[in-house]
């Protein structure tokens, strides 16, 4: 009987949802800084390592790089976009340089805080070489190309945003931390990354905002 209730419930739910979606009203949103499209760039520090079948572990490596993001908050809590990153890492023995182009999704779990959980998947590539050319061997791994996965979090601080001005969007300083994994056929690497970016949030157009009449109905210029 319970199973029957569940099946019946499921079918009825599907039917109900098909009726509801026939005319979906749009929802106007309260103005906030973290809205609309975003574009940002910054710098990052990396700590990590890797391993290969041929030479074993690469040892801890440190490095720095840059990152560029572009995307949009599709809803108040979900954003989608692209991220392009690159950098160099090294230790006494190895030196790497690489980059990635990934699709990124971010989730803002708490409405009142500008904290976002981020994840991305995309194409990553890097080259690997020995720091001292005289140590190079024929069977040294050259690097790799593969799918790069990242998971992390960020926080946006809007120092110039004034509450109560009905503005949407603005400049933010964004701090982030993430873990990046890039397994390839020859080498896999994992890095812990922290960084800071400057992000500009374009905000929403006024036809999408819940505004008082004086703000909403400004005369055309």
């Amino acid at each position: 009987m319970r199973a029957k209730v569940i099946v019946t419930t499921l079918l009825a739910a599907l039917t109900a949802s098909s009726v509801a979606s026939a005319q979906e009203a749009v929802t106007l949103r309260e103005p906030a800084p973290r809205q609309g499209y975003y574009i940002g760039g910054g710098t990052r520090l990396m700590m990590g390592g890797g391993a290969t079948d041929k030479v074993g572990g690469l040892g801890p490596m440190f490095g720095f790089g840059g990152v560029f993001r572009f995307g949009q908050m599709a809803t108040d809590w979900l954003g989608l976009g692209l991220v392009l990153g690159g950098g160099n890492s090294f230790n006494g023995t190895w030196s790497t340089g690489g980059g990635h182009l990934s699709l990124e999704a971010q989730v803002k779990p708490l409405a009142e805080y500008n904290l976002a959980l981020r994840g991305s998947i995309g194409l990553g590539a890097f080259g690997l070489s020995r720091v001292k050319p005289e140590d190079e061997r024929e069977d040294d791994p050259a690097g790799g190309l593969g799918a790069q996965y990242t998971l992390g979090a960020s926080y946006d601080l809007f120092p110039f945003y004034e509450e109560g001005t009905y503005k949407s969007g603005g400049f933010a300083f964004t701090g982030f931390a993430e873990v990046a994994l890039l397994p390839t056929s020859e080498v896999w690497t994992m890095n812990f990354v922290i960084g800071i970016e400057v992000t500009y949030w374009f905000g929403l157009r006024k036809d999408r905002l819940e505004l008082p009449p004086d703000e909403a109905f400004k005369a055309k210029k």
Binding site: V26, K218, A219
Partner: peptide, 17 residues
């Protein structure tokens, strides 16, 4: 002040002289 309303669409809001 002019406003358009249609379910499923964002409104246009403007002021015309």
């Amino acid at each position: 002040k002019v406003q358009t309303d249609l379910v499923g669409y964002y409104p246009a809001r403007d002021a015309e002289v």
